Amino acid sequence: GRPPQPKSVEDLLDRINLKEHMPTFLFNGYEDLDTFKLLEEEDLDELNIRDPEHRAVLLTAVELLQEYDSN
């Protein structure tokens, strides 16, 4: 089946190999997954995450988090 739900933002970023963005998220108040899963493209602009590939991966991760919630 699906991988288990990540336990933290750090756990999530670790899985998608984008842990380099951890300080950015923490500094901007994305300390838990409840906050993280509200992330949208405009937020990525504000966080200055410009890499299109990173953005795509992050937004996909957000969608997956929302799916875990609805099940």
Rank of each mutant, 00 (worst) to 15 (best):
L26F: 11
Y68G: 14
M22Y: 15
L47R: 01
I16S: 07
N71Q: 14
L64T: 14
P6W: 12
P23R: 10
E10A: 11
P23S: 13
P3K: 10
V9Q: 03
R2V: 07
P3R: 09
E42T: 13
F25V: 03
Y30I: 13
Y30Q: 01
L12T: 02
N71V: 13
N17H: 10
L18I: 04
L58Y: 01
T35Q: 13
L59E: 05
D11V: 02
L47K: 03
E31H: 15
L33G: 00
D45F: 07
D45V: 11
S70L: 00
E41M: 06
E20L: 06
L18N: 03
Q66H: 12
D32R: 10
L59R: 09
A56N: 11
L26Q: 11
E41R: 07
G1C: 12
I49W: 02
K19R: 12
P4D: 15
Q66D: 07
E31G: 15
G1A: 12
A61T: 07
I16F: 10
L44C: 06
K7D: 10
L13T: 02
E10F: 08
P52T: 08
P3D: 15
L47T: 04
E10L: 06
A56S: 13
V62T: 07
L44V: 03
L39A: 01
A61C: 07
Y30D: 04
N48E: 14
D51K: 08
R2E: 05
Y30L: 06
E10D: 06
Q66L: 09
L58I: 14
K19N: 10
I49N: 00
D34L: 05
N71E: 14
K37P: 02
P23F: 08
N48K: 09
T24Y: 00
R50F: 12
E31S: 15
L38E: 13
L47I: 05
N48F: 00
F27A: 15
R55D: 03
D43Q: 11
D45H: 06
E67P: 07
V57A: 15
D14E: 14
K37W: 00
L12D: 03
Y68K: 13
L47D: 02
V57L: 15
N28G: 11
S8I: 04
V9P: 05
L39T: 03
L26G: 04
E31D: 14
P4V: 12
R55A: 01
P4A: 13
D51S: 07
I16Y: 13
N17Y: 01
I49M: 02
E42R: 14
R55K: 14
E42G: 13
L18D: 00
A61K: 04
E40Y: 02
R50C: 13
L26H: 08
R15Y: 09
E63V: 02
M22F: 14
R2G: 07
T24H: 04
N28D: 02
E67D: 13
L59S: 07
S8N: 09
D32N: 12
E20R: 06
E67M: 09
E40N: 15
Q66P: 05
M22C: 11
P23Q: 12
D51Q: 09
Q66M: 08
D32S: 14
T24Q: 06
A61W: 09
P3V: 13
L18Y: 02
F27D: 15
H54S: 08
Y30A: 01
P3C: 12
D45C: 08
D32H: 11
D34Q: 11
L13A: 03
N28F: 08
D69A: 08
Q5T: 09
I16K: 04
E20M: 10
K7W: 01
H21R: 01
Y30W: 12
R55M: 01
P6F: 14
D32I: 06
D11L: 01
D51F: 00
D14V: 10
P3I: 13
D51I: 06
I49A: 00
Q66I: 06
E42D: 12
N48H: 12
L64S: 15
L38V: 07
N17V: 02
L44F: 08
V9S: 02
F27G: 14
E42N: 12
P3Y: 13
I16E: 06
D45Q: 06
R55V: 06
E10Q: 08
N17C: 07
R2K: 10
F27M: 15
T35Y: 06
Y30G: 00
P23W: 11
I16N: 09
H54L: 02
L59C: 05
I16G: 05
T35R: 14
S70Y: 09
E63N: 12
E53H: 12
L33N: 03
V9Y: 01
E20A: 04
L26C: 07
D32E: 10
V57W: 08
Y68M: 13
Y68L: 12
P23A: 14
E20N: 08
N17T: 02
A56Y: 05
H21I: 07
L44P: 03
G1F: 14
S8Y: 01
E31W: 10
L39S: 02
L26P: 02
L59F: 03
L13E: 06
D51V: 06
Y30F: 13
T35N: 11
L38I: 03
